[in-house]
Design a protein around this nucleic acid. Structure first.
Lengths: 201, 201
DNA sequence: ACCTGAACACCGTTCAAGT
DNA sequence: ACCTGAACACCGTTCAAGT
């Protein structure tokens, strides 16, 4: 006689997400997750392979949400405006789920790594915007420059690494503004990058 | 009768550093460190307060080394050249000690955080270089933009986050080149940022 | 002074047994 | 099918006792 299911994969992921944000990655224990969904720790292994798998599922779910938000703010017709919007979506996401954000670009063990195809999808909005600004030849480099800056800024901000005073908001505005100019097709060193027609869509 | 010391704080930090790089932060256990220096785990507590304190000491030591290297590559007379040199020192350091690097800007618990004064010292070379390029009014923002980019790029590279092909070296060169131009004093958008007194130190 | 074994309260995970 | 208690091999840390 099968015992009725007392929980679900979805509930486990949701509980894991909450516990992760409350206590950080170290606080995310199988025993706590089990207690939160009303079962005993060993029963978790009926639905997930191990703790690394749970981490992966939590990150996967959040990355899908982030991708949707990124996709929804581009397409204004002004790539510079799109870039600013993307940076703010990124930053807002990180602030709303700092612990989860910290895992997005972390060195995770194999079992915790999300589907590469999902990562590729998450990159599309920024890649298209970068292509519009920088031209097709430099699109990938431009996207990497912007994402590196945004990720670096945000992770430093979350870590409390801006310790020299000053206005962090002003630094964020300064950065995105200068970067948008820097990656534009006409910003290359003379004789360097060729200016190509922007790609859209 | 006092028993003779079988190890030293220095040896413990060095062993911790090695174990950290070999097995990551999770692999850095008090039992392993104790075994490496030839004592039993409880004896570690004669020299360090707890595991968080050990992490702090390891990061502290590496940050001093990084600061020395950063200080040693600036002053060429060409701030743009200095900036490129700083970026490479940063990147080389991260590659030589990836796990330690990951802790430099991490959200660490209070006990693991290094002396703020040490952090300030580590920022001096980049702050001065940024001031030369961007002018005193934008020095702090310019430094934050460059450090954010460099940290973001390096941590993404270490995490294997550049998964869309392309040439990562080219992206690094593209980024530092465009950033140097972007933060230069004459790169501001007309009528853009207001000029505020710079905060240094 | 420094070192130790024993102990405590935690972990993730496995497994045989229950329904 | 799902759930469970018991068990195993780990942790960090404390503490009384040894030299």
């Amino acid at each position: 006689m099968p015992t009725p299911a007392r929980t679900s994969l979805d509930e486990i992921i949701a509980a894991g997400q909450t516990i992760l944000e409350e206590g950080g990655l170290d606080g995310l224990t199988m025993r706590r997750v089990a207690a939160a969904v009303g079962i005993r720790p060993p029963s978790l292994y009926k639905r997930i392979r191990d703790r690394g798998d749970l981490v992966r599922l939590i990150v996967d779910r959040s990355l899908r949400e982030l991708t949707d938000r990124l996709d929804s703010v581009v397409g204004s017709g002004d790539p510079r405006r799109d870039l600013v919007a993307l940076a703010h979506v990124f930053r807002d996401f990180a602030r709303s789920r700092p612990a989860t954000y910290g895992l997005l670009f972390a060195r995770l063990p194999e079992t915790s790594r999300v589907d590469p195809e999902l990562n590729a999808r998450a990159s599309q909005a920024i890649l298209r915007t970068a292509a519009e600004l920088a031209g097709p030849d430099d699109a990938l480099e431009a996207a990497r420059t912007v994402v590196a800056w945004a990720h670096g800024f945000i992770s430093m901000e979350l870590a409390g690494a801006f310790r020299l005073g000053g206005d962090v908001e002003r630094a964020f505005a300064f950065g995105i503004d200068r970067l948008a100019t820097a990656i534009a097709a006409d910003a290359g060193v003379p004789g360097g990058q060729a200016a190509d027609p922007a790609v859209a869509g």
